[in-house]
Design a protein around this nucleic acid. Sequence first.
DNA 1: CAGAATCCAACTTGATACTG
DNA 2: CAGTATCAAGTTGGATTCTG
Lengths: 124, 124
Amino acid sequence: MSTYATSHLLGQVLSVDCPSREILEHLTTKWSVLVLRCLSEGVHRFSELKQRIEGVSEKMLAQTLKVLEKDGFLIRTVYPVVPPKVEYQLTILGAQAAEKMTMLTGWIERNLPEILENKQRVAK
Amino acid sequence: MSTYATSHLLGQVLSVDCPSREILEHLTTKWSVLVLRCLSEGVHRFSELKQRIEGVSEKMLAQTLKVLEKDGFLIRTVYPVVPPKVEYQLTILGAQAAEKMTMLTGWIERNLPEILENKQRVAK
DNA sequence: CAGAATCCAACTTGATACTG
DNA sequence: CAGTATCAAGTTGGATTCTG
């Protein structure tokens, strides 16, 4: 059963009121894309993510992780030890979403030379 | 030949200085994702895009199209007629990028019920 | 270690109005 | 039709400081 009133708008990213819009935006954030890419390779701690994702501030990383957790795309596990240890791992859905995103980042990485050359050409 | 100094960083989305970061961000913008999705279905005029992509302002649409054009992902064709007619179509690279993005939006659209249910569960 | 909280500058976005 | 210009307002983001 659907608990939302706009069920007729399901699956319509092009519709303003479709909930998929929000999900899409959460997944395609500057940092969420990179978080998903890292976590798709396995479980990571907060500090590991911070290190691997060059340029993230702790604030943005924490914020991004919160949103993805609330959306049900990742699980946050706190170990009751000192010093604190927190691990992040993708859920099934998160892994599926990450897979799609990784296809994009992978494509960009593989085709970057061609993309940049093409961009140069256009600039002229 | 590569015209950029950071060639050793090629294909490293996780690296701050890799040009792929910028490309990635241009492609994963709120509106660019939807523009790519529309154009992947074929050539569109400005007004058609504005209509189909609910919620875009003309400003944001124009801006998004400019960026994608500069990156070489789409071609803008102006017909010298009155009233003006401008068409937008993806380049080869643009189509490839759009394909990846469409896989994501498609996945979201298809799995939205499950995603939303899962999100509800997490909220508790 | 893993963050939360605060402050503030900078960029983004949305209406609105106007133009070739 | 296909934008551009402008301005107010909202949001983002980073640096810094602090804490269990």
